[in-house]
Nucleic acid binder design. Structure first.
Lengths: 359, 359
DNA sequence: TTGTACGCGTTATCAG
DNA sequence: CTGATAACGCGTACAA
């Protein structure tokens, strides 16, 4: 059942059917209701494919996330889907597994599908690798860019002048990019986390989980900045893969390397790492938070269930998804793009942090 | 850049370009390479929209899940996406929030998009409500149908003849349906769970979380069947919403109602409920698994992190997603549909079950 | 083996 | 206000 059938049934032309059904201005009320009646009677559904062909844009957006198994990204996706469906848009799902090559391929597929916009969340690759040839003119929004940096950045971030390194990291991924970014304010969140610890009375604080990816670098920088702002000595910064195992091993090394100068609090790169940190600390017979406080980032589901429940800073993931999709929609409508934004986190106080014990 | 451009650049007709690029048989090697060269040079991407219009089917499938935030469904989705992308298919994501009305609407959108297939996971509605008018001829696969039943089924399932109720439940949702179903074997899993408890020596076992939805009814039935098979007296069966709070409250009532005949083990409808059960038991000062064993279903992420870690039976969620997508693909290829299947679970032994303490 | 020409279902333009 | 008609980009009979 096509426009033609409806046109015939209503005794009008196909052009009128289209106009009537889209609420397009100039069409007599009487005609409109005739058409609507016929459409309803025939159970007519305009073919979105045919429409897309002629309008040269579909009402579909492509959404690339690292993994739909991870409920962090699942919630970002939910925010996107929710906002999209309110605006009558559909969303194509693809998982990148954080592999730049897959990112490239899936974007290719999106473009061939003539999507009206692309949202890349947790991107691992560089923006230059996303498109072959020139950049297509669909709006692109990046959510939480996890871009990799040269390994030497870990050293830089440990010792370099914070403001200068910060500027370098930002320059590489924020300024000058021709697309909107919705990112978590990693730098500010790290500062907030440290301030929380300082307010509890901690003075020797370490960071576990430095890695040459954007959010990690920014968190380390925020960590250093808040420490110096509080007039405290720089804390130890150790690298590790972002996983419980990574956190476990790195913490073992940290605590073994300086037995006479053990920190009273550890800031972990993320909650997964923090859980490994807690295990390592427990394995040494040290109590959390009695003797040592631990704090993470993100507020993943496990955080509430660790023992003790983890104090952490929550990312507004659903809101990030919503904002990303809203940005796409306003681009489509030709509105001036709202600038990229860094969203603040929300400190979630649980039981893995407490004042340090006096000795 | 369209076929025409490529045709011109290669000095052939558009028909030849299509044939060459699709690996269609009859085309000279020389011509083919000429065309391929031109296509590559021009960075030509066939427009999937235009193709869909003429072939009257897209290489996109619609995937409806209750929520992408839930990593259970996230993993089903990952299985679907994985298999789809291997076959060069794209997947449209929609969240139903378990609302039949939303299910209906999203399916509508899928159909208007001319999807090549539809996968409905965790469907809450009835199959009759999914389509207006006659059923469209795209393959449909249902994964883990959570169909609701009249409330009286809870009573039936508690006391009715198991085989007869089982047949009724199955008849309503399995047989006679004109689509493939990939479902978890709830009945068998419940039997397995009870057998595990029986093998540990338990004799007084209760079920918490009976609800008038398909999987719950089947689990209760499996529970009853395994109990009678073991020659044990029927256990208590209590209803509750499927959530920690639901499990908590129902367990309080259960334990208060028969203080002189407290069970030594509780089978919870799912892991979320089981966590509430454990909390309620702990709140009464009873030890798990020392005095009372608790077992759940699904093996959600939290299960490994509860205290004690929860023994449960794992659903092969990624595999269910893969099978669903494979089924769609073989339908498209016109292969005879593999019949619906009920996949077995895998018992995951953790620390919430143990032999009952002797008294 | 290759080219011509039509049609897929819409929307948009331009007359009337 | 409405109707005829030309696209949109591709696949495919059919003819050559």
């Amino acid at each position: 059942v096509t426009v033609r059938d409806v046109a015939e049934a209503a005794g009008v032309s196909t052009a009128t059917v289209t106009r009537a059904l889209q609420g397009h201005s100039a069409v007599r009320d009487e005609t409109r209701s005739k058409v609507e009646a016929a459409a309803r009677r025939l159970d007519y559904r305009p073919d979105r494919i045919a429409r897309a062909l002629v309008t040269r844009t579909s009402s579909t957006v492509g959404m690339l996330i690292p993994s739909s198994v991870d409920s962090f990204w699942g919630e970002v996706a939910a925010g996107i889907e929710e906002t999209a469906s309110e605006a009558n848009y559909s969303v194509l799902l693809a998982n990148s597994h954080s592999e730049p090559e897959r990112e490239r391929r899936m974007i290719e597929v999106f473009l061939a599908q003539r999507v009206a916009g692309v949202i890349i969340a947790g991107a691992a690759g560089e923006s230059s690798s996303w498109f072959r040839g020139e950049e297509p003119d669909v709006p692109l929004v990046v959510v939480n860019w996890d871009a990799a940096f040269p390994a030497r950045f870990v050293t830089l971030v440990r010792t370099g002048a914070p403001q200068r390194v910060l500027a370098a990291v930002r320059a590489a991924t924020v300024t000058g990019a021709s697309f909107v970014q919705i990112v978590f304010d990693d730098f500010g969140a790290a500062q907030e986390v440290v301030r929380h610890l300082v307010s509890l009375g901690h003075e020797r604080i370490a960071f576990v989980g430095a890695e040459p990816i954007r959010p990690s670098l920014l968190r380390v920088l925020g960590f250093r900045s808040a420490l110096s702002e509080a007039g405290l000595a720089p804390g130890a910064i150790v690298s590790s893969p972002r996983s419980p195992e990574g956190g476990f091993r790195a913490t073992q090394e940290l605590l073994a390397s300086s037995p006479d100068d053990v920190p009273t609090a550890i800031v972990a790169y993320d909650d997964a790492t923090a859980i490994g940190v807690i295990r390592a600390v427990h394995a040494l017979g040290i109590e959390v938070p009695g003797t040592l406080s631990v704090i993470g980032f993100d507020d993943i589901e496990m955080a509430a269930f660790s023992e003790p429940p983890l104090t952490t800073i929550r990312q507004p993931r659903r809101e990030m998804g919503r904002m990303a999709m809203r940005s796409i929609l306003s681009s489509i409508r030709g509105e001036p793009p709202r600038p990229s934004s860094a969203l603040p986190g929300k400190l979630v106080l649980r039981r893995s942090t407490a004042p340090p014990s006096r000795r």
